[in-house]
Design a protein around this nucleic acid. Structure first.
Lengths: 210, 210
DNA sequence: TATGTTTTGTATCGATTGGTATAAAACTCG
DNA sequence: CGAGTTTTATACCAATCGATACAAAACATA
């Protein structure tokens, strides 16, 4: 059992020996996210990464493992950061609201000038060489995971009478993910939030009413 | 003016001097397409390409220029080959048929075991490093070109009374392209033709009736 | 101040990248 | 057969890739 001084954060509690870090790992990770987001896993070289992260190569390897582990940690940060709207949307009371929040959340993300265009989980490692195969599968697995989460939410909605009896949560979830991933491609090509919102409006016409 | 022997093809007419090619450029291009399609522009190395194309490096450069030009020629071949259904669909008499043929054409392409998963124009160069920036723009420009062609087709449909007066061809074309590109991501993740067809069925519910 | 520990910066590692120089091989034409 | 032309195969180029070895620097503790 470890007793901490009251009011002291757990991270800073253990003042370990040795030379202290000259950089904030969280800030460095944020910067790495931008590089992978804009250039993809293979397009982001270690020289790119270290320059933007403002750390040298050994510091990167000591703090994040290697390029692949860094990418995985960047993916974690991405889903907890820019993609947080997705998880929040799942908590909306009605299925229709869930879908609207997902679509419009994706559209408005394209309007943030601080963020690269498109979606990291889509363009980060969609088609890659043999060496990056596991990274591709990692990203694909996360896309599939999002679809599963949405499907379960829609299954719940159906149980709650929030969807018609003939509605298929599996098909609907896949449709929503398809539109979302298409919006990611459009966003990567420079589509504006307004354009994406109009796409979302059209896509919502396919939603089963009442 | 050049007079050709009757019944002789123009390509084989000029029997030029020098050592003849030991490979068929068309076959080699087809093989290169598969490599770029499966691995993306950056993930496809020249070693990959020459091995699959079954030619050596100088032959590749003599016949196709360099990696970037080879990719452009592969894109040409892609639109004239696997993506030919898109152009044919535009010739359908009614707008609704155009969209159905596009969607179901994309779905059935995913069922061809001879072809890599997904869509070359989407995953070939979606997010890449600085050196491949022009290749990314090339692919993006072709995606935009497809959308323009579809928009014009829908504008014609509206003039012909084939779409409601309040329908917006620009929005509809963008919506269709978005769904199509989303289907490409789903296809890259291993979605079956049946699954994609069901997605298309849902997507078609957004289409303006009458 | 001395010791132990961790991070930092530099300088590099072998492997691979896209791209070529060079000469032998294989054809046409004279 | 010999000259001219083009393609082939091998070997190689500089540059960059991801990843490390090593020693100086900066801290805590004794």
């Amino acid at each position: 059992m470890v007793y901490l001084p009251i009011g002291m954060k757990l991270e800073t509690a253990a003042a370990q020996p040795g030379r202290p870090r000259a950089f904030d790992p969280d800030t460095a990770l944020e910067r790495a996210m931008h590089v992978f987001w804009a250039k993809g896993y293979e397009g982001a070289s270690l020289s790119n990464l270290t320059r933007v992260m403002r750390i040298n190569r050994p510091s990167l390897y000591a703090a994040f493992g290697n390029k692949e582990e860094l990418f995985r940690k960047v993916l974690d940060r991405y889903v907890d950061g820019p993609l947080a709207y997705f998880g929040k949307a799942l908590a909306a009371p009605k299925a229709r609201d869930v879908i609207e929040q997902i679509f419009f959340g994706a559209a408005s993300m394209a309007g943030d000038p601080r963020l690269p265009a498109g979606c990291l989980m889509v363009q980060g490692a969609l088609a890659v060489g043999k060496a990056a195969g596991s990274v591709r599968k990692e990203a694909a697995g996360r896309r599939a995971g999002s679809e599963v989460a949405l499907r379960r939410r829609l299954q719940r909605a159906k149980r709650e009478g929030d969807l018609p009896k003939n509605a298929d949560p599996t098909e609907l979830a896949r449709y929503v993910m398809t539109v979302l991933q298409g919006m990611a491609v459009q966003g990567a090509d420079g589509a504006s939030p307004d354009q994406l919102r109009r796409v979302a409006q059209v896509a919502l016409r396919a939603w089963p009413e009442r």
